[in-house]
């Protein structure tokens, strides 16, 4: 007998189609659904918002989890976890994926947090939109089982979209959820999900290829690795992760790296971070703002000036005057623009 009345499920809602469908499948059975969305500090959408590029259409930068909650008519609670989460990015028990993405640890981390929340709000079980075999690293059968076990959720984690491929869970055994009305979707094809979306008349959802996680991005991951290798101060949940998205990055010594703005928006963003740091620019020219992390000596300041000159509108001149300043201190440095071959050697 099905007894879903008074049963509350908490689910990880990203706003993507899979988690939306998983929630909907349970809601159709009369289960009360509460969404959770963890703010890790590595969502590229959030980073684009912090950069504040003019003319970006607000709808394209909206929080998709909130949009999904609105469409489903359920609360999606956004939970900030940036500082704790960074620990598993740096040192994941199950390793990184192709880049800095610790997908298995990430799922375990989120599910543990979700379990805590479930206990606080009197929830009965958790669910996710995971689909067996959809992602090579974190959604094959062994990975799904590891994730469940490591999160301390054996039997209490329901994946409604792939339930028929997985062992029966406690909510199914207890009759809170009717297993017959769960699904048997598996693999990378999206056909099953798209058909279900049509059935439920879910028209709005972000494309799965969009990928909101910066940790799967090659350039971002390389820069994050550099930050860790060179012990650059880095605080998740601040502008530090956003800075890894902005501009061209060069490392000129173990202690010193620089970020060269590529356009007005990036220059303005770097400008906001200049207090207490060296900045370089070419006066009276089209010039990037060059923000320095670390304390460059005289030689390095010349080198950085040469890089600033290279990216200015005076790059073809033999010698260029570059202004270097840090708070009240300011000096002019006359240098030849840096050669591209040199830039390639120190580009991060």
């Amino acid at each position: 007998m099905k007894t879903s009345e008074g049963i509350k499920a908490l689910g990880l809602i990203s706003g993507g189609l899979d988690s939306t469908l998983a929630a909907k499948v349970l809601m159709e059975q009369g289960i009360e659904v509460h969404g959770l969305n963890f703010s890790t500090g590595f969502c590229s959408n959030d980073q684009r918002r912090a950069l504040g590029r003019a003319g970006e259409e607000p709808h394209r930068l909206r929080n998709e989890a909130l949009r999904a909650g609105a469409d489903l008519g359920i609360e999606v609670e956004i939970v900030p976890v940036e500082k704790d989460y960074f620990g598993i990015v740096v040192n994941p028990k199950f390793g990184h994926g192709a880049h800095m993405n610790p997908c298995i640890d990430c799922r375990i981390f989120m599910l543990k947090k979700a379990k805590d929340r479930m206990d606080q709000v009197g929830g009965h079980f958790l669910f996710t939109g995971e689909v067996l075999g959809q992602r090579p690293m974190s959604q094959h059968l062994a990975a799904l089982q590891t994730i469940e076990k490591e999160a301390g959720l054996e039997g209490l984690l329901l994946r409604p979209l792939s339930a028929h491929h997985l062992p029966e869970t406690i909510p199914e055994k207890k009759g809170w959820v009717d297993r017959a009305r769960l699904l048997a979707i598996a693999g990378r094809s999206r056909r099953g999900q798209l058909a279900l979306a049509q059935t439920f008349q879910i028209a709005e959802f972000p494309q799965p290829s969009g990928g909101c996680c910066s940790l799967t991005d090659d350039t971002f991951s390389r820069r994050l690795r550099d930050v860790l290798d060179h012990q650059v101060p880095f605080e998740p949940g601040t502008q530090d992760p956003v800075l890894l998205k902005v501009g061209r990055h060069f490392r000129v010594s173990h202690q010193v790296k620089l970020v060269v703005g590529r356009d007005e928006t990036e220059n303005q963003f770097l400008e906001r971070l200049r207090r207490g740091r060296w900045c370089f620019e070419v006066p009276d020219a089209g010039s990037p703002l060059v923000l320095v992390q670390g304390e460059p000596d005289d030689e390095l300041r010349k080198l950085i000036a040469a890089i600033a000159a290279r990216y200015s509108s005076r790059r073809s001149e033999r010698l260029v005057e570059v202004q270097a300043s840090k708070d009240e201190r300011s000096e002019m440095i006359r240098v030849a623009p840096a050669a591209d071959t040199f830039l390639e050697q120190c580009r991060i």
Binding site: L66, G69, A70, E75
Partner: peptide
Amino acid sequence: DDRVILVDLPNWCRGTG
């Protein structure tokens, strides 16, 4: 001063009631 709040806050309200 974040214009996207004009989308997010109404959505949050629709979800929370």
